[in-house]
């Protein structure tokens, strides 16, 4: 079994008196793909944002390689280098070309050589089928293309874990596939990922472990995604999954 990479211990996150995440514990091993599903407002996105320390937390701790990840900690930028994140709304830098979007952080943060970073960026772009768009600006790309660039941008930093926050939620159905294929190939290559998604078929195909979240707590956790999606153990998960079925009866 691979070594433990990320450990979340008794995480508590709330706004005012409203608890979004309540005493949540979870460990992620290297190479594992965790899919987090649950009804809207259950805290899935907040969970990912906490792991990347975009949110401050009210209790518990998050450890990556045994080191705490905490917003406003002096070492937080260095920790975030190891945690790649892709957002629902892509959030490429609109004032920079595709290639510059990808090479900016490796050059400025990791102080890598321009030639070397560009070569890697082009290889990665080639792999997602967008090498010929390197000199375009984000506004010239479709949503699906932008999202593939956002994934490449995160990958170019060589993160130890990749967080994907509903990355296909804003896309047209036809573009969902091209993005999810990229993620599937990453999983095959052994990337560690935490994925929040509403694409249940995709979740079933890619997950090593499924986490079903409600009210900021893990309701059901399964290392056998096929079994989970066919016969969830809890009634709540059964209800939730049922909302994705359209059988006329």
């Amino acid at each position: 079994m691979e070594k433990e990479l990320l450990r979340i211990e008794h995480l508590k996150k709330g706004y005012g008196t409203n608890d979004v995440i309540n005493d949540l514990s979870l460990t992620v091993r290297k190479g594992e793909v965790i899919v987090v599903i649950g009804p809207s407002g259950c805290g899935k996105s907040t969970l990912l944002r906490c792991v990347n320390a975009l949110e401050d937390i009210q209790g518990g701790q998050i450890l990556l390689d045994g080191e705490p990840v905490r917003k406003n900690a002096p070492n937080i930028s260095r920790m975030r280098e190891k945690i790649g994140m892709v957002f629902q709304s892509y959030d490429l830098f609109p004032h920079r070309t595709i290639l510059d979007n990808i090479t900016l952080a490796p050059m400025k943060v990791q102080k890598r050589k321009k030639a070397e970073v560009e070569q890697e960026a082009l290889e990665l772009l080639d792999r997602v089928g967008l090498k010929d768009r390197k000199d375009d600006y984000p506004r010239q790309l479709s949503g699906g293309q932008k999202q593939r660039v956002a994934i490449v941008r995160a990958l170019c930093m060589h993160p130890e874990i990749l967080l994907l926050d509903e990355i296909t939620a804003a896309l047209d159905p036809e573009m969902v596939r091209e993005v999810l294929d990229v993620v599937l190939s990453l999983a095959k290559a052994g990337s560690t990922m935490m994925i929040v998604t509403h694409e249940m078929a995709f979740a079933k195909a890619i997950a090593d472990r499924v986490i079903f979240l409600e009210n900021g707590q893990i309701v059901e956790e399964s290392s056998d995604p096929k079994a989970f999606f066919e016969r969830p153990e809890t009634e709540r998960a059964r209800q939730f999954l049922h909302t994705f079925d359209y059988e006329s009866d």
């Binding site: 930028s77 975030r80 957002f87 004032h95 900016l104 941008r153």
Partner: peptide, 29 residues
């Protein structure tokens, strides 16, 4: 948008780097 800063920081940029290379050029434009 605030998420521009967040996506810069999620790439490991310090607040200063994010301001200099991501926020400021867009604000000026």
């Amino acid at each position: 948008p605030k998420i521009q800063e967040e996506s810069a920081q999620s790439l490991g940029m310090t607040p200063l780097l994010a301001f200099r290379h991501v926020i400021l050029p867009q604000a000026v434009a």
